[in-house]
């Protein structure tokens, strides 16, 4: 008898192997990316709003210069690129909360996908959106007339992007902490306050003295200093680097611990 469906025994055996890389797959990553880019809320907060901020708060300062003669608009643009990247990466990481609340994580546990592969997908998605956020902010700046040497574009952009890894970890941390579906509504204002302390909206130097001291210990401070260093020519202080590293570790370890608790069998 001829049939289009092979018999079970012929069909199964060679296919019953474990997937490579714990089920991590570029194809799934692409769908994930498409999904993120379809989310209007994410797009509004990470790709559109920071650009609009630049046009409102940066552009009016055209013609003004920093101490080293570089344009103030570039300072604002880089700061807002850091802001855009951190909101982008946080929102992707924080989406884990939604997926847990919806029960998708439970559904995934019935597939060969290993939890580490799931987190890797989230991190890559977060960093992709973070990169897009930086590039768009820089494009808005460039079109609006910001002119700085190529190495500033490159190094500042790179620092803003790499620094946002801290917030990808922060997003995952919150994602595994909060069981809420609407977690970004809660984190949004928190991010704004952190950005304020990190000198992304106004230079830290204009804050009251006490707050300036506090600001140095908040998680955006380090990445802000690093991202602007190529522009301002200021040396990168050890404190700024330490700030970045310590927060990256704190959020990274925190996320890993919560993640392990979440995937433990009870």
């Amino acid at each position: 008898m001829t049939t289009s469906t092979p018999t079970r025994s012929a069909l199964i055996e060679p296919d019953r192997r474990l997937p490579a890389l714990g089920g991590f797959a570029p194809g799934a990553l692409l769908i994930e990316l498409r999904r993120v880019l379809r989310n209007r809320r994410t797009l509004a907060f990470t790709l559109i709003m920071p650009g609009v901020f630049f046009l409102i708060f940066g552009l009016p300062q055209s013609g003004q210069s920093l101490d080293n003669g570089r344009p103030v608009t570039a300072y604002v643009m880089i700061s807002l690129a850091v802001y855009a990247a951190m909101v982008a990466t946080t929102s992707v990481g924080g989406a884990v909360a939604t997926e847990r609340a919806l029960g998708w994580s439970r559904q995934l546990r019935l597939t060969p996908l290993r939890p580490a592969a799931y987190v890797a997908t989230k991190l890559i998605t977060a960093m992709s959106l973070g990169l897009l956020a930086v590039v768009i902010e820089f494009l808005v700046g460039a079109v609006a007339g910001v002119r700085v040497p190529a190495y500033v574009w490159l190094l500042s952009g790179l620092a803003a992007w790499v620094g946002s890894l801290v917030f990808a970890a922060f997003g995952l941390f919150i994602g595994y902490l909060a069981p809420a579906e609407n977690v970004m509504q809660i984190i949004g204002p928190v991010l704004a306050v952190l950005a304020m302390f990190g000198g992304l909206f106004v230079p830290v130097e204009v804050l009251p003295d006490v707050l300036q001291q506090v600001a140095k210990f908040t998680p955006v401070y380090g990445m802000g200093v690093l991202a602007r260093a190529p522009l301002t020519g200021d040396g990168v202080s050890l404190a700024a680097v330490a700030n970045l590293v310590v927060w990256a570790l704190l959020f990274g370890v925190g996320a890993a611990r919560l993640f392990r608790r979440d995937t433990a069998r009870v």
Binding site: R16, R35, A101
Partner: peptide, 24 residues
């Protein structure tokens, strides 16, 4: 499952294709 969730913002087809990627 009685309680397994789905991602509301994926299409039916995307959900199937994404899940398929997790298998050998």
């Amino acid at each position: 499952l009685q309680t397994g969730g789905l991602l509301k913002d994926l299409t039916v087809g995307e959900t199937v294709r994404m899940t398929a990627h997790f298998y050998r």
